[in-house]
Simulated scan of single mutants.
Amino acid sequence: MVRAASIGIRLAPEVREALEEAAKADRRSMSAYVEYLIIRDLEDKGFLPKGAAE
């Protein structure tokens, strides 16, 4: 998948800390983990076909 866009988001400090911990536990960077979560959610809701983001 080609990464063609970037977005900026604001997070509460406690959310950012939790995100950092979750990403580290999954051996991903924070941005890779956020992308993974977005893709999984979009696939689960039918907005993105399964495997289309690979």
Rank of each mutant, 00 (worst) to 15 (best):
P49V: 06
S31K: 07
S6I: 04
K50G: 08
G8N: 11
K24C: 08
K50A: 10
I38F: 10
K50S: 14
L11K: 02
E17L: 06
E14A: 11
F47I: 02
P49T: 05
V2N: 15
K24T: 10
R3P: 13
D44H: 11
E20W: 02
V15M: 05
M30Q: 06
R3E: 09
A25N: 11
G8D: 09
L48M: 13
K45T: 15
K45N: 12
S6W: 02
P13N: 03
A4V: 14
L19R: 04
I7L: 10
A22E: 11
R40L: 10
M30F: 00
M30H: 00
D44F: 06
D26V: 01
Y33D: 06
G8C: 01
V15S: 08
L19K: 03
I38A: 15
L48G: 14
R3W: 09
A5N: 11
D44C: 00
R3N: 12
E14F: 01
A25D: 15
A22T: 06
A5C: 09
P49E: 06
A53F: 14
D26M: 08
P13E: 04
P13T: 02
E35I: 07
G8V: 01
R27E: 13
M1F: 12
P13H: 01
A4I: 08
A22R: 13
G8A: 11
L11T: 02
G51P: 12
L42D: 06
R27Y: 13
R3T: 11
E14D: 11
A53G: 10
L11Y: 02
G8P: 00
E43G: 02
E20C: 01
Y36H: 11
M30R: 06
R16C: 01
I9Y: 06
M1L: 11
Y36V: 01
A53D: 12
L42G: 08
G51L: 06
L37S: 13
I38Q: 08
I7S: 04
D26T: 07
A32W: 03
E35F: 00
A25M: 04
L37N: 11
I7K: 12
R28S: 08
K24V: 03
E14C: 00
V34I: 14
E54Y: 02
E43F: 03
A52G: 08
F47A: 14
A12W: 00
A23T: 07
A23Q: 07
A22W: 06
L11P: 08
K50I: 05
E17D: 13
D41P: 01
F47W: 15
M30E: 08
R3S: 07
D41I: 04
L11F: 00
A23I: 04
I39L: 05
I38S: 12
L48Y: 14
P49N: 09
Y33M: 01
D41K: 12
V15I: 08
K45D: 10
P13M: 00
A23E: 10
L48S: 11
A4C: 10
E43S: 09
A5H: 07
V2E: 15
A5M: 06
A4G: 15
A4T: 15
A4Y: 10
Y33Q: 09
G8W: 08
L42V: 00
S31M: 04
R40N: 12
P49L: 03
A12I: 00
R27K: 13
D26E: 15
I39T: 07
D44P: 03
V2L: 11
M1W: 14
E21A: 14
R28W: 03
Y33S: 04
G46E: 10
D26H: 12
Y33R: 12
S29E: 05
M30Y: 03
E35M: 03
